[in-house]
Nucleic acid binder design. Sequence first.
DNA 1: CTGGGGAGGGGGCCC
DNA 2: GGGGCCCCCTCCCCA
Length: 486
Amino acid sequence: MEMVCEIGTNRPLQPSCEPGRQHPQRWCRIDITTSHQSCLLKQLDQQRRQELFCDCNVLVEGHLFKAHRNVLFGSSGYFRMLLSQGAKDCAEPANASFDVFSPDTFTVILDFVYSGHLELSSSNVIEVMSAASYLQMNDVIAYCKDFIKSSLEISAKEDDDRYLCLSDNSMGHERGGDVEQTGPCSLNAQPTIWAEDDVQSKEFQVELSPEVTLLSPSPSQQPSMVETELEPDQDIQHQFTTIVPERRRRAAPKRKASAGRSAAASDSSELDLQVAASHSAQKADELYATLPTIVGVVGVFSKDSNPTMRFKCPFCTHTVKRKADLKRHLRCHTGERPYPCQACSKRFTRLEHLRSHFETIHQARKLVCRKCKRHVTELSGRVVCEGTRRYRLCSVCIQETGYSSITLEEDEMGQHQEEEQQREHAEEPGLLLGVDEGEGEGEGEGENQDPGWVITDDDDLAEDSGADLIIQEVDDSDEELNGKQD
DNA sequence: CTGGGGAGGGGGCCC
DNA sequence: GGGGCCCCCTCCCCA
């Protein structure tokens, strides 16, 4: 915004010197955007507080807020959409009602809209961010992310003596009252630490110039990628370059993570597979842009001053003791499934789940007859193949139900060789979980040829992380031959 | 419609 | 920090 001013001053011209009149020698353009917008905003804020010219009523959980629709329109995508619908009817005050966030939260947001000051604290940042997400206020979301990022920088500097040590090992002697930070601080300042029990929350205050934040939430202001928010090392970044926003019916953490449902609810498994296969950081950026934010760190000090570090999930209220557990937990929000089963293309969030799945579904490890549920031994039962699935049946059930027509594994020999092979590979870096014999239908294998899946860790082949899993195809023709000879 | 079992998924915690 | 185990819960399928 530019304004015509008198040379050498920031004073606007007097009415006698209107811009429309021609005074070519005495005019130039001076940018006083900041001061002008600041004054304007202050005026609007005063009007709001005095309920002057307010033409928009916002009801939040029974608490009435009055505001100016122009300001709300310019600040929030939600209001932009809402007010656009009734734009022609400006005579009547616009009304909006919210029950998804608290009046206190909306107060913070409204104060920000009218002042450019966003008052964040450990106790409200998640709510504010959630509300901002609802109201489509990208700038607020971005600053909430910055706030959380700053808190994370604390943990990133755990090992640095210059900073607080928040780990369980070191907090006892490192933490002290002298490091507490009082009063507002900028996001660039030394990150503060907050405790939830006996230590009063320290508040951040993000000061923003109104011309930047109020009316022009440009995309460039948003963090391009929040990979550093989660963890300073590239490991986490790597993890989030592989975000799979999968929301299968089972993936949604229905019990505890209601806040995370909206994070990636709109994604399909088709997209999941494509993204999982891609190493493109750009795609990860795009995916990540749709996620609310990443992670929070909460230092909790018990009453007996015994420090207990808790890591708080930004998507829900869940807290965990270890960052690794939080990393694991976040997968239920991001939908990341770095462990694919190549036998059936199903993906899992954890290696152990993949292993369990593989052993149960594709290896028939359980020595239980699937039909009669009785315990079967290698002698009293056989493994039955049904597609990529395998399960055991006792000899009686096989005869009774005609399963003899279904492929039976030459199990005794195969099992023996399998155990042999596992022993051989027990000392190898790769994790060999099992080799199947017999027939199968996996991954384009021939009808009479079993893929022989082997679950391994393989950094070269892993898509998403160093711990990623693949199931390699192995040549078990010899084993098959042996089995058939039996 | 209901109950049981299987499979999958998540949390806590130990190594 | 990662791997792994155990436990619990939820969902789905099936009788």
